[in-house]
Nucleic acid binder design. Structure first.
Length: 618
RNA sequence: GUCCCCGUCGUCUAGAGGCCCAGGACGCUGGCCUUUCAAGCCGGCAACACGGGUUCGAAUCCCGUCGGGGACGCCA
């Protein structure tokens, strides 16, 4: 297992150290400790890969050895390359170096990351790592076949924002690398899982344009994709684990456990299952039902993993206990089903929310017990509500993806927004899907939780409203028009309306509401607007306009000329004429330029509305 | 309480020892444009949680404090 994280604080045993400014220096010596855990880079490089030669010599006078260890290995610069490159692995030394080309060579300091890896079992000579950038955990990407990633929601409600983003990150990763994206339903919570939720999640993903290569409704070679349809598998592996002595049947009743937990709680101590049934060979008399528990290995120990986002994380065995894998009825618990399925489905990378970091420790123990190689892991930062609590269905209605659909948010905008929550690409903000696929990486996923605040979503939505073809917007607007009682088709006129309103509305819903008066017979006048602009002073001007309008060519330019002509003739500013007309046409003081507004209202209706306004002034 | 993670403008973020008395975006705000409202353009306000260390040099590395979040289920 290879670790090391640039940001990681806990580099125990100093198993890696820093490199250098990588400027202006040639060869480099790498000193290994006899531990051998410590490594030093006394010199810096211009750029390029390093190759390590394991020729060991004792540190010589003048060697800049970091750490307290002796021994050395010699490294030589190999080739120039633009990007920070990954480790070259020779023998069991792994070295990764970062470089920044633009910086002037000032003081040679240590920079890169060096890492020693114990001889990796089953993964010799990862030469392909040469061409790829190291991730934040210091690992070189595995030279693997196409990645397989999954989104594994539990169908206990609608698709929520956090889940959508998890799905998105995984999907982007798969799409970028030509990998496989799998949807798996973790429906083992019998009380809360519903078919409606399955439907809702599927609909939500589809609306967002996140498609899956294997899973419900599409099938696949590694199915079934509902956990409740995989029960025999869980039983089978549980039995094997029991046979291996790495799991056992536990006959403690729920009541017994609850009682003990309560006692610990009262004493403010952390309860861990005390292993009552660990060594039982047969069911105790009078007890039948049993669960299967994982048997933690005895003794001291630490589980560690290199997270692609968080770096290295570890936990002591003593903080773990013999957790339940399988219920009496054969239904797996999350930590168990998840591992079995990820392995059987040949998942190569698990990307999920940070709420799961603690559950990866028992899962890793299970991989070890099963003698399976765990997938790569990436834990994404949480999305918090305005109250800074984790965004949840109960507390935050805005967590519902489909709520945003109903609010007139475009899926393009939501995808963009949610991707930028926790991930970034320099200063870029408007990043369409294709770019997202091209640019997404775990390297730029942040570690800090973000707060859901919709202002920028609204802004982004308008950006997409303006970017997408007006015809397409018109089509999407139709259902929102229906909502406000307007039945309209996505025709040329509606397209023109969209063109006029896409910079005046943030959402489809808002647009539909604003645009309503183009489809009604007559308008509802705003009291204040009418009082101000439909005054007796405006009457002759309106009359003039009406007169000239009757014979006018019905195009925005010509119509605007009419207003202009009237205002010039009367010797008043254009606003004096345009505003009364605007109020007459729309009932309000705001609208697109008056020529466009007239055109879009339509000749007959426009004339009628102006007449009506005139009549109102009396 | 125990364990895990995190800490840059109000919010999303750039930042991987010198390009940073910290850049972009949203929001807020002043102005320009203008027949209204928008959009657009130009400008402004606004942050490295705190304290020690390492270093010639720290937002960046280390330690501590404080703060926030997450997990502690026969939920996922």
């Amino acid at each position: 297992m290879a670790y090391l994280a640039h940001h990681s604080a806990g580099l125990d045993h100093g198993d890696l150290l820093a490199g250098s400014a990588l400027q202006g220096l040639g060869d480099l010596d790498v000193h290994l400790g006899d531990d051998p855990r410590a490594v030093a880079v006394p010199a810096a490089l211009d750029s390029g890969h390093l190759a390590l030669h394991h020729g060991v010599r004792a540190p010589a006078q003048g060697d800049d050895v970091l750490g307290q260890h002796g021994g050395a290995a010699r490294g030589t610069r190999q080739s120039d390359q633009e990007r920070p490159e990954c480790a070259v692995e020779l023998a069991h030394v792994r070295l990764s170096v970062r470089q920044r080309a633009a910086r002037p060579p000032l003081f040679p300091t240590v920079v890169g990351l060096l890492e020693l890896t114990p001889p990796a079992r089953g993964r010799p000579n990862e030469r392909s790592a040469l061409s790829t950038a190291p991730d934040r955990s210091g690992n070189c990407p595995r030279p693997m076949a196409t990645p397989r990633v999954r989104f594994a929601p539990s169908p206990t409600g609608y698709l929520h924002i956090g889940g959508a983003r998890t799905a998105l990150f995984n999907w982007l990763y798969a799409r970028r690398r030509g990998g496989t994206f799998i949807l798996r339903m973790e429906d083992t919570d019998r009380e809360r899982s519903t078919p409606e939720s399955v439907r809702a999640i599927i609909d939500g993903l589809r609306w967002l344009g996140i498609d899956w290569d294997e899973g419900p409704e599409v099938g696949g070679a590694r199915g079934p994709y509902f956990q409740t349809e995989r029960l025999p598998l869980y039983r089978e592996w549980a039995d094997k684990l029991i046979a291996m002595g790495r799991a056992y049947r536990c006959y403690c009743t729920r009541e017994e456990i609850d009682a003990r937990r309560a006692i610990f709680e009262r004493e403010k101590r952390t309860y861990r299952y005390e292993g009552t049934c660990r060594e039982l060979l047969a069911p105790p008399p009078g007890k039948a039902g049993h669960v299967v528990r994982f048997k933690m290995p005895p003794g001291e120990g630490t589980v560690t993993f290199a997270d692609k986002v968080l770096g290295r994380i570890s936990k002591q065995y003593s903080d773990l206990d013999d957790w339940v894998m399988l219920r009496g009825d054969g239904i797996p618990l999350y930590n168990y089903g998840c591992v079995i399925d990820d392995h059987l489905m040949q998942i190569t990378l698990v990307g999920r929310g940070q709420e799961h970091v603690n559950s990866t420790f028992p899962q890793l123990m299970l991989y070890r017990a099963l003698e399976w190689e765990p997938p790569e892991l990436a834990h994404f930062p949480l999305i918090l509500g305005p109250d800074r609590e984790k965004l949840s269905k109960r507390l935050h209605p805005e967590a519902d993806v489909m709520l945003h659909k109903r609010s007139g948010i475009l899926p393009e905008a939501l995808i963009n927004f949610v991707a930028r929550l926790g991930w970034s690409h320099g200063d870029d903000e408007v990043i369409p899907r294709e770019r997202l696929i091209e640019w997404f990486d775990f390297e730029h996923v942040g570690a800090t939780s973000g707060v859901w605040s919709p202002d920028k979503l609204l802004w982004l939505n308008q950006q997409y409203l303006k970017m997408l073809p007006p015809r397409a917007i018109a089509e999407r607007l139709v259902p929102f028009l229906a909502e406000v009682g307007v039945s309209a088709a996505a025709d040329d006129r509606l397209e023109k309306i969209v063109l006029a309103f896409r910079e005046r509305a943030k959402t489809l819903k808002e647009m539909a509401e604003k645009v309503r008066y183009f489809f009604t017979a007559g308008v509802e006048l705003d009291i204040a607007a009418a009082a101000k602009h439909l005054s007796s002073a405006a009457k002759p001007l309106l009359a003039q306009v009406l007169e000239r309008l009757r014979g006018a060519e019905w195009s925005p330019q010509a119509l605007e000329q009419v207003i202009k002509a009237v205002s010039e003739q009367a010797g008043v500013g254009m606003g004096k004429v345009a505003q009364p007309v605007r109020v007459a046409l729309t009932g309000n003081v705001t609208s697109p330029p008056i020529g466009d507004t007239l055109e879009l209202v339509g000749r007959d209706e426009a004339l009628r509305r102006i007449e009506a306004a005139l009549g109102r002034i009396g």
